[in-house]
Computed example of a mutant assay.
Amino acid sequence: MSEAAEFIDFTLQREASEERARAEKEPGDGLRYYGASVGAVRGTIRDAGRKFRPLSHDQVTALSSELWTQPVFELRLAAVVLLQSNQRLLRNSDLTRIEGFLRDARTTALVDPLAVDVVGPLILGLTDQSRARAESILDRWARAPDPWLRRAAILAPLRAVRSAGLDADAVLRRTRAAAENDDSEIVQEAVAVMCTEWAKNAPGRVPSR
């Protein structure tokens, strides 16, 4: 492990709680749990940012991948928080790396913040051809066999529903494509979340379930 990854791992192990680990463990996700709280993960990434600053784009993405390769929930969540905290550095080319994370996550506790707090803001901040390429990636996710990718495609624009830069027609089309002929709870739950958001902010344009 790099010095930064070792610092994060050591700090989170100090925050471990066997009781919390047992309570938060999700069957079938294949991960170990230290039992550190979300607050501890966020605080650790904040401290790492101060200790190892300034982090460049390449350092952020490399560290996120290093953390993600460890089959430990808190380290993978730390990778997500690291990307959230450095979202301004991310590029549309980073969606390839994030797609790998999404395919491997297999739990809403990791997929949802990746989609809503990393992918969504990343794409919203792009312009012109970069934005078009990123949107085409979301379109591909919406039709992918993997329900976790379809869930991410649906939830990515959640924070941007009120934004003037949001292409409402594209979001509606992608949501319907992701949900078409799909009765999996993973996807339908995401559709329900988007329906609720649209009902509040764009009445009359609610995605069909």
Rank of each mutant, 00 (worst) to 15 (best):
L12D: 09
P145R: 04
A79W: 07
R50I: 07
D29G: 14
A5D: 12
D182N: 14
R14E: 14
A36S: 12
L110I: 01
A168D: 09
A160G: 12
L67N: 09
L122W: 12
D139R: 13
R20E: 13
I137E: 13
A144F: 03
A5C: 14
A62C: 04
Q13G: 00
V111M: 04
F52D: 02
L126H: 00
A192V: 08
R53F: 03
L172S: 09
N181C: 05
V171G: 10
D146G: 11
A168P: 00
I186H: 03
L75H: 08
T44N: 05
V81G: 09
S37D: 15
S130T: 07
G49Q: 02
F7L: 06
T108S: 10
E66F: 03
G49I: 03
R162T: 08
A132G: 02
A192M: 08
E180W: 09
L155K: 04
P113W: 10
A105N: 03
G204T: 09
P71F: 15
T11S: 14
D146R: 12
E3K: 04
D167A: 07
A160P: 01
L172D: 02
S208V: 15
E24Y: 10
G125W: 10
A5T: 15
G43R: 07
T175R: 00
D94P: 07
G35V: 12
R131K: 12
S130N: 13
L102P: 06
L82D: 09
A23T: 02
N86Q: 10
S85V: 04
L122I: 08
D117F: 10
Y34A: 11
S37W: 04
Q84I: 07
